[in-house]
Amino acid sequence: MYLEVKNLVKYYNKELPIIRKLEFSVKKGEIISFLGESGSGKTTFLKCIAGLEKIHSGSILLNNVALNDKGIFVKPQDRKIGFVFQDYPLFPHLNLEENIVFNLDKKYHKNLGYILTLTGLKYFVSRYPHELSGGEQQRTCVARALIREPELLLLDEPFSNLDSAIKQSMREEIYKIIKETNTTTILVTHDINDSLNIADKILIFKAGIVQQYDKPEKMYCEPANCYCAMILGDMNKLFIGSKTYYVRPEKVEVVKKSNHKIKVEKCFFQGREYRIKGRYKNEIWYFFSKKSINENEEVFIDFKKMDLIYFDPVCKNFFK
């Protein structure tokens, strides 16, 4: 494995560790998305990997070199790790090119032209940070990290400061750049769409531990627990006997006749289709329909048995 994190523990208050026991590994060139709520310790984790925060126990191995292990701590400036921070910290007294080549080893100067072309920044080299748009600032930060040919790239919520109009195109651009340079990347985000769009694997992090670490499709269809299921999208709750099952909205179909009748509460127009909110046996359900449905109208819905997901009954209260 290219990056191996074993039993990583980090706390500010010993009683409440922010990372309890983190263990996972990444292959060369893979993009891993670290998904969790705000304040769950995602940024702290990235800082631990980069050496900007000390860990309390555990080990980090990158490309067969121990960065953190018993009695070993490699300084942040000596780790070959690129870090793109959430707030795009470009130094205001330097222009775009000076920011990219800031404190750069001579051997990497040859990469400048390639990186500028790759990130589409070659016409802005003399501009200062306040003269750049959010997207350009973000690409400059990525360029500054990539020009050093890092062994690992860390992206901390890189799309959170962008408006939705350019978010999608930026995601695609960043994905293209990372794959073209074959850079192993950890992307930290709280937005599931970021993860589903560009990650090879998703790691769901909650309460200081890994909840699930898998490919996006598998995670979506076979979530390890109800938290993982909920974080990846809406879930409709269904009681069969004494058991509670869940079904994804897109697995629910509007049919002419079935055993399941639902009363429509709201119909949201979403371009290609309508997103319907309804009440089924006192539970709120969501599903999609090609046609608009009036409020208070009752319709029949159906779903396949194989699409039902079952969790242990204690799961639903676990994270409350």
Binding site: P76, P89, F102
Partner: peptide, 21 residues
């Protein structure tokens, strides 16, 4: 922002250079 310091360290600056540059 604190990320200036973190970026500086990440880009290989020691404390004195961080202050100076």
């Amino acid at each position: 922002p604190e990320s200036y310091d973190d970026t500086g360290k990440n880009l290989g600056l020691g404390p004195f250079k961080l202050l100076q540059k």
